[in-house]
Amino acid sequence: MLEARLAQAAVLKKTLDAIKELVTDANFDCSDGGISLQAMDNSHVALVSLLLRADGFEPYRCDRNLALGINLNSLSKVLRSAQNEDIITLKAADDPDNLSLTFESQNQDRISEYEMKLMDIDQEHLGIPETAYAAVITMPAAEFQRICRDLSGISESVTIDASKDGVKFASAGDIGNGSVTLKQTHNPEEPALSTSIELSESVTLTFSLKYLVNFTKATPLAGAVTLQMSNDVPLLVEYKMEGGYLRYYLAPKIQD
């Protein structure tokens, strides 16, 4: 059986908000290491990979591996009943038909109990090799969100060009063109406000802004975001949170 108690419902609520528009149904794979999810969007252009490590829960117990097939929209509706500060407990039997969710207020004067039906999801699982990316850019998550939103007003696509001069986000569309260039900065008092660029070779890739804007729904989960790129492979956008991560992979647009 699975029993996982999370001190703050907000983590799960924000995580769901960050993936539910990209993915409709997904298996939550539970093992003794924690709860993970991997799913592609309908068009197979983007992939979401979530890990909530066992040590992020207190307590966490999972006797055998379980795949909980969940409709994310349904889970999101159930989680709406949880306050951000609630303690949330997930429970499932071995070979479960239902997931049980309990929300307790901090001072335990309110206990809400929900049961959600599970579904059978036959999902392919992709093996993503460990990659040493040519460019690793860490920047404030809010800055990345703003850049994606601003450039999506100009074009459907953005070309990200990482070089020793900085990282340039450029878009060209019917109304004109625009770009934002970030230089490396260092803010020792607030590391989350720094931008760092590690580069082994220059990288230029073009991506759909629709997906990037969607990824930035994860902004409330982390102060910083990391973009990892190599020529001719998908972009990795990572939000690290306490006790896990949310990663998005985005296939590039390719010159025919």
Partner: peptide, 14 residues
Amino acid sequence: NVSQSTIEEFYKEH
């Protein structure tokens, strides 16, 4: 001409 690739073109089924 630019075309959108898919994730499966890069990563194989596990």
